[in-house]
């Protein structure tokens, strides 16, 4: 790792101040950023740890919305969201491995927007609102491509608000070495329609599968999407799977998710 200063603000205001100075980088749980720093793919002058800001760590249910502080770990979401939003808690409880879930945070995952991360699928699939220190961003506007989001320099994810669906399930085909999704699909059924979000598949990061949403909104059954195929265009192709294989998995994962819910 390159050398850097390490600061530990205890309030959001202090963190934003620290991030505005020089080449500063926010550190969430570090489960992606620390390996990145070790590989010398990042060279921040100052690392601003968000781990000591109590205001970023909470799970709150307000009616039909669950709000999660940006610094909340996956393990905490898995435990504390289980009653209100079991589909989300189940996703959080299957990210990485137990030790990773004790450090990694929802804000860190969404800020990084790895094209194979789990949380972006839940946020987009739930039509969540990403709350930052300055504004609120709809998930549909937030994710802007591989490792790219609407976040500005020095802006941090302070909370995420998920509308609670009638039912939701996350179906994941894990890449066995990295435990990231090779392809995973989050299906959420709301009173006003179904949302289907796909991660791990596209060169453009997480995305919604509009055709499946349409079919499932009028008929929520695995049969409704039988025969529906996603195009292989722009799908990720690497040693773990071809673009065509990933496109095929989108259909399989979506069908399995729907089967779990019907």
């Amino acid at each position: 790792m390159y050398a850097f200063d390490f600061v530990k603000p205890t309030s959001i205001d202090e963190a934003i101040q620290a991030l505005s100075e020089g080449e500063a980088q926010a550190l969430g749980g570090g489960q992606t950023l620390i390996p990145t720093l070790k590989a010398r793919l990042a060279d921040p002058g100052t690392l601003v740890s968000l781990a000591h800001i109590a205001d970023l760590k909470y799970v709150r249910v307000n009616g039909d919305v669950i709000e999660i502080g940006g610094g909340t770990t996956h393990a905490t979401v898995a435990a504390q969201a289980a009653e209100a939003y079991p589909g989300l808690a189940d996703l959080a409880g299957r990210i990485g491995d137990p030790s990773v879930r004790n450090r990694g945070t929802i804000g860190g995952s969404l800020a990084n927007n790895d094209p194979s991360a789990c949380y972006p699928a839940a946020a987009l699939g739930s039509g969540a609102t990403i709350v930052t220190n300055t504004r609120e961003i709809a998930a549909d506007d937030y994710f802007q491509g591989m490792f790219t989001t609407a976040l500005e320099e020095g802006e941090i994810v302070t909370a995420v608000r998920f509308p609670i669906p009638q039912a939701a399930h996350y179906e994941k085909m894990a890449q066995p070495a990295s435990r990231f999704p090779l392809v995973a699909v989050f299906v959420a059924k709301y009173a006003d329609g179904v949302r289907v979000a796909v991660t791990g598949a596209s060169n453009n990061g997480v995305f919604r599968w509009a055709e499946a949403e349409q079919a499932l909104s009028s008929n929520f059954s695995a049969g409704a999407i039988e025969g529906l195929r996603h195009s292989a265009e722009d799908m990720i192709a690497d040693i773990h799977g071809t673009a065509a294989y990933r496109a095929h998995l989108i259909g399989v994962m979506t069908r399995r998710a729907v089967e779990k819910l019907t």
Binding site: F6, K8, L27, G30, Q31, I34, P35, L47, S49, A51, H52, P98, S99, V100, N102, R103
Partner: peptide, 11 residues
């Protein structure tokens, strides 16, 4: 449990 290779001592 945490992976101590993926956490800073300062934290």
């Amino acid at each position: 449990a945490v992976k101590s290779c993926t956490m800073f001592a300062a934290d």
